[in-house]
């Protein structure tokens, strides 16, 4: 662990990198300066708070507190996924269900298989990884559903007019949305180690763990994220598509 040498002074110097990004923005008139500044301030505040909260939770090691932290992570992920729904009714409830099932099922399996221990230092980071990947997958699913229902409105109407129920009228749309939601996780699984050294593995190597051991964790994380994003995408898409219809089986 001795090679972890980031000090507050070093972080302050890292601000130079942010300034370079801001200058580039000004020069190219991209217009993201405000978002970047807000993003940096939020990241610093959120990570500082989370750092102290995690230190406390790990120190007291109470299951109830660990679970509370998992619930907060899931609620936040669901709220953010809802933001991508662009008007899909009940998007928060759907996202909450999808992320909860994905996170709880995956963690339960990992704990039962003794792949991870039910300690805050393992459960909280793993929950964060699962919930954030599920959140991104669901966001992509929502965006794809909205675009497809818009672009393929006539085809859906034709199927309804032929006597299809909502499921048969939208089977292709739902399948495509699920594929879109899972695509980043699958692409990442295909290129892991070749293009990127993902967070879990990089973190362990940074902390001085033997890379051959770090890959074992990364393989577990890859499997875990594949399962979680599949579950979340399937649940979110199958719960979201009926929202595009009214009670008379007409497109909204």
């Amino acid at each position: 662990m001795n090679n972890l040498i980031v000090s507050p002074t070093a972080l302050a110097f890292a601000v130079i990198l942010v300034i370079i990004a801001l200058l580039l923005n000004f020069k190219e008139h991209i217009g993201l300066e405000k978002d970047m500044i807000i993003g940096v301030i939020r990241a610093v505040i959120q990570l500082t708070v989370v750092g102290y909260v995690l230190t406390y939770i790990i120190k007291v090691d109470r299951p109830a507190l660990t679970l509370l932290m998992v619930v907060i992570i899931i609620l936040n992920a669901a709220w953010n996924a809802r933001g991508r729904a662009n008007g899909i009714p009940h998007a928060f409830a759907i996202s909450l269900l999808a992320i909860s099932v994905a996170t709880i099922t995956t963690i339960a399996l990992l704990v039962l298989a003794h792949a991870v221990k039910f300690t805050p230092s393992q459960i909280v980071p793993i929950s964060g990884m699962i919930a954030s990947n599920a959140m991104v997958a669901i966001g992509l699913c929502y965006r794809n559903l909205n675009a497809s229902f818009h672009d393929q409105r006539q085809a859906v109407l034709e199927r309804l007019a032929l006597g299809a129920d909502a499921k048969l009228a939208t089977l292709d749309i739902v399948r495509n949305a699920i594929k879109t939601g899972m695509a980043p996780t699958i692409d990442s699984a295909k290129t892991v180690g070749l293009v990127s050294l993902p967070g879990m593995m990089s973190g362990l190597i940074f902390a001085g763990i033997d890379p051959s051991k770090a890959i074992m964790y990364q393989i577990m994380v890859t499997f875990m994220l594949l399962a979680a994003t599949s579950l979340a995408s399937v649940i979110a898409c199958y719960r979201a598509y009926p929202q595009f219809f009214n009670e008379d089986l007409q497109l909204r």
């Binding site: 393929q152 006539q154 085809a155 034709e158 309804l160 007019a161 032929l162 006597g163 299809a164 129920d165």
Partner: peptide, 29 residues
Amino acid sequence: KVDYRRQVSYCFQQPSLFGDSVRDNLAFP
């Protein structure tokens, strides 16, 4: 609704064929 629409069949002015081939469309019913 699904039973009614199979009995009372609506044809659009500018129909949209779905899938890839004619077979995909005629297999749907």
